[in-house]
Amino acid sequence: MRLSAPIYRLKRRAKVLSRAERIPLNEALDRVAVAEGFTSWSLLAARASATAPSRALLARLNPGDLVLLGARPGHGKTLMGLELIMEALKLGRRGVFFTLEYSENDVLDRLRSIGGDPAVFGDRFAFDTSDAISAGYIIDRLASAPQGSVAVVDYLQLLDQKRENPELMVQVRALKAFASARGLIIVFISQIDRSYDASARPCPDLKDVRLPNPLDLTLFNKTCFLNDGKVQIEALR
């Protein structure tokens, strides 16, 4: 069965329904799922996961990769990052989600929306919502992570928001060297500049990455850009 919209849009539809009818989000999600022909949201999420672009992306990633995952707000980049971790966990790997954007409840909510249950994976999965997240902090947290582990950082443009943190370029270079030395995959969720015109190109690219502070984008060797359900994956070298 083909979904009437990408899962991120269906989730947005459920949020609107939840607010409009003042019902719990999980009930609204189930209602949306029923309208799509499923008995529950968990079944819909499982079906979506079976064909998720995150599976194709993970298949193209190698230990040591530094990846940029970009999209405009509301186009599913956070869900994609979490789905990527879920796919890695299914293969027996370790996954960590670092976020400077969301609270613990927000992360759990998004995990539920894609059918993820942290309890299933035990200590192979972790997420971190500390305000102290920076390159040094991430390196410390991943010091014992085995090769092939996947870390998602949400998001790139917030890493140097605190003045005491090193410049963004310095942090990304440090994480690139760390990922390469340890055989880890580090994925940065990224904002896209408002100037991006979807009518001109179906997906953004590196030219559209929002950079309030200088950053050499050639530090990344893989990119994944999303827009309106479309996915564009590219190896830069």
Score class of each variant (00 low, 15 high):
residue 55 R to M: 08
residue 68 L to Y: 07
residue 127 F to R: 06
residue 177 A to W: 02
residue 102 Y to P: 00
residue 210 R to S: 11
residue 62 N to A: 13
residue 142 L to Y: 02
residue 15 K to Q: 15
residue 14 A to Q: 13
residue 153 V to M: 11
residue 4 S to A: 04
residue 174 A to T: 03
residue 16 V to R: 14
residue 224 C to I: 02
residue 133 I to M: 03
residue 35 A to W: 01
residue 213 N to W: 09
residue 134 S to N: 05
residue 195 S to N: 02
residue 160 D to F: 04
residue 101 E to F: 03
residue 230 K to S: 04
residue 75 H to L: 09
residue 9 R to P: 09
residue 35 A to N: 10
residue 25 L to V: 07
residue 190 S to P: 12
residue 64 G to D: 12
residue 190 S to D: 14
residue 210 R to Q: 11
residue 20 A to R: 15
residue 200 A to K: 14
residue 171 Q to W: 03
residue 86 M to L: 05
residue 15 K to W: 13
residue 12 R to C: 03
residue 5 A to T: 08
residue 233 I to S: 14
residue 195 S to I: 05
residue 25 L to P: 03
residue 18 S to W: 13
residue 158 L to D: 01
residue 84 L to I: 04
residue 188 F to D: 06
residue 197 D to R: 14
residue 20 A to D: 15
residue 84 L to A: 06
residue 16 V to F: 07
residue 132 A to D: 08
residue 65 D to P: 00
residue 183 G to Y: 07
residue 178 F to H: 11
residue 164 E to F: 13
residue 205 D to G: 07
residue 92 G to Y: 08
residue 94 R to G: 00
residue 45 A to W: 05
residue 47 R to W: 09
residue 89 L to P: 13
residue 216 D to G: 01
residue 70 G to D: 08
residue 27 E to D: 13
residue 131 D to Q: 12
residue 198 A to L: 06
residue 51 T to M: 13
residue 230 K to Y: 04
residue 211 L to R: 15
residue 71 A to K: 06
residue 102 Y to L: 14
residue 225 F to M: 08
residue 70 G to P: 12
residue 82 L to W: 09
residue 197 D to S: 13
residue 148 G to Y: 03
residue 67 V to T: 04
residue 124 R to C: 13
residue 43 L to Y: 13
residue 143 A to P: 00
residue 44 L to D: 11
residue 132 A to R: 10
residue 171 Q to D: 04
residue 110 R to D: 05
residue 153 V to Y: 10
residue 232 Q to H: 10
residue 90 K to S: 05
residue 15 K to P: 06
residue 86 M to G: 02
residue 39 T to A: 14
residue 62 N to C: 04
residue 61 L to A: 01
residue 121 F to R: 08
residue 166 P to Q: 07
residue 70 G to K: 09
residue 168 L to V: 10
residue 83 E to T: 14
residue 68 L to T: 01
residue 122 G to D: 09
residue 46 A to D: 15
residue 41 W to L: 12
residue 65 D to Y: 00
residue 196 Y to D: 05
residue 174 A to F: 00
residue 145 A to V: 05
residue 219 L to R: 08
residue 54 S to K: 05
residue 83 E to Q: 15
residue 13 R to V: 04
residue 177 A to S: 00
residue 134 S to D: 03
residue 221 N to Q: 03
residue 180 S to N: 13
residue 23 I to G: 15
residue 123 D to L: 09
